[in-house]
Design a binder for these strands. Structure first.
Lengths: 200, 200, 200, 200
DNA sequence: CTCTAATCGAGACGGTACGTCGCGTCTTACG
DNA sequence: CGTAAGACGCGACGTACCGTCTCGATTAGAG
């Protein structure tokens, strides 16, 4: 929205210590997100937890959001890597199940990301990768729709995020199958403008 | 998401000056949101613009978010007042048209609210009022659905916000009718689990 | 030193209520000085204790120091009224006894005034009245001395204040007679440039 | 009088920058005291003059008085370093001359300290160091007196401060010799309970 | 296996905004 | 209609965090 520097600083030389430090910082942020919200966390907190020096942080990330973006990028990539292959396949419901399953296996992590004040950043990263994928897709396979592509992506991302957030906040209310069905019914199907292939 | 104090301070005695001051602060915030994003705005900025003293601010709102919440509450109430009477009526498309029309008539205001770093707060307030309305509605008229009511509201609000945001960021791309149709097709209809009553 | 308005506001008409209010304020200040130091006391504290309205305070005193000055003036006047008649008489020791006796009878009050952060103001008021008295004294009776008169007064006041302060802070260490003797020996005699009339 | 935190914050590690900053702050305060009184000076004023950041101030001193105490301690130490070696020697008059001479050579500084609303703090620091010295002195050399030692110090400090203040406020009224004589006659001799060794 | 340069820990620093507190003025509502 | 209650403008305070910087100590990896 309003942040300027979004990316990690690119190092000149490849050094083992660099990736070690960054990984420690990412992990530290995720751990802290379990306990308090993103903007109640200070850079000093992260450094202390990661065992790094304060100045060291800025040698890797220009500001606090850059680290969050980094974390979000890594996790969203991981998520999409699993869900995408079958997203635009015939069975969108299966894609939903896969996606929900992956989130379910990493509940803590995704709870922290979605409910810890980081949802905005996650949405953005999700949308960014989503838009990129939509662009890469060949026009032929892209479904014709009266809904503009970028709006469809934005809406889809928002819907997925919202439904997953609700699911994580209300554990033991819906089974994985149920939430996947809801996801399919409320988000995927309307976008694809299809009749539901599989109604549970 | 993560703010604690969300409401305005309730005064003991009714005083004309109080509402005057608060109104000035709300207006000032909205004006400033046209030019820069919410967290680039300082409380001092708001006070200067409103012609109030800095300390006076805290006699009305405990922090910066409380004012934003106040603003959001006022505007969302205004919006729902118009859209609701016909939301659960037969013609959901008409409700969408009304809603979009109202936003269109207050483009500047809603652009500021939705794209100025305040969207999170707006979403929350929207959801809050939405949940309240859903609860007030008699169970009889509530449509049976496999989607839990509060999830439906959360999803609906998110969808509406997302679509409106996109519309405001891409002027002259969709007509009011088109966006209302999209809104109806992507959000309202799937929630109500209905066939589209009017397909454009 | 640095305060501007030092005096009480002079009323146009003499009104019983005015003196009643001021007296209540003075008393309240003195009571509060027992518990905490002058600049930890707020005007609101004084008003609450005095049972007066906050705005009312400013009808009588322009600021917080004006009240303190008022209190100091009253008490110093009372003190000097007793000690002076015999101060420049032959027996300066008797004057010291009288002075110490008066302070002893009002230990609480003078403790508050001298050790509660008000000693500066008290010194000033003491010096002011002292200078005035020195000026009023006929030059004939004024003792010739190589010490300029105003310096003598300043020194005398300071010495008296210091010794009394020490006495109040160390009760049961010196008897009244002893402290009067010390006062006489360290302050009065050197100023008057006399041999001690009574050596204890 | 009534302030709680009186000392500078002690740093863990020795750093050149620290003393540099503190020295700049001390100097700035002294310069500002030439022009206006202590409590008309804000911490921001001091920082601006010193070229330091506002927050940096609090890394060194907990509040405004702590800096004043620091300044007072430095200057009083400097003063006593010169006057002490001969204070309890035979010729107390010589000590007075030395003391007055030092103050005369630093008139601006001492004027600022004594007449700029800082005299209370100076008195305290003076008394503190004085008490310390009295305690360190071996009981053998300590003159027997009916005046308790700490009272003697308090009285002595007060007298010195008062006389010096008067002298600084009335330049060209007394020569250095005259004021030293007065100091000796009014303060030192009575405390030491001696006949004047040298009467001018 | 060394040596050189990048990385790191530590933390002082300038800066900006925060939220608090008290003063002294001025308005409002109530008795 | 006067007087309390208290809203208000003002300005300093002390706190928190940011991002920059300098200084040594350490250590990776190139020669």
């Amino acid at each position: 929205m309003n942040q300027i520097s979004r990316t990690a600083i690119t190092p000149k030389r490849k050094d083992v210590r660099i990736e070690r430090t960054r990984s420690a910082l990412r992990t530290a942020l995720l751990q802290l997100l379990d306990h308090r919200s993103f903007d109640q966390i200070t850079i000093r907190d992260i450094c202390t937890r990661a065992g790094s020096g304060y100045a060291t942080y800025f040698r890797h990330y220009p500001d606090k959001h850059a680290l969050l973006n980094d974390v979000a990028a890594v996790e969203v990539t991981e998520l999409l890597k699993r869900a995408l292959p079958i997203l635009f396949s015939v069975d969108s419901y299966a894609a939903c199940v896969t996606l929900c399953g992956y989130v379910d296996q990493n509940r803590e992590l995704w709870s922290a990301l979605l409910t810890g004040g980081a949802s905005g950043t996650l949405r953005e990263e999700f949308a960014r990768q989503g838009q990129q994928l939509a662009k890469d897709q060949s026009p032929a396979t892209r479904p014709q729709s009266r809904v503009p592509a970028d709006l469809a992506v934005a809406f889809g991302v928002s819907g997925v995020v919202e439904i997953l957030t609700w699911w994580l906040q209300h554990p033991n209310t819906c089974t994985l199958d149920q939430i996947a069905d809801i996801l399919n019914r409320l988000v995927i199907a309307p976008i694809l403008h299809r009749e539901l292939i599989r109604a549970t």
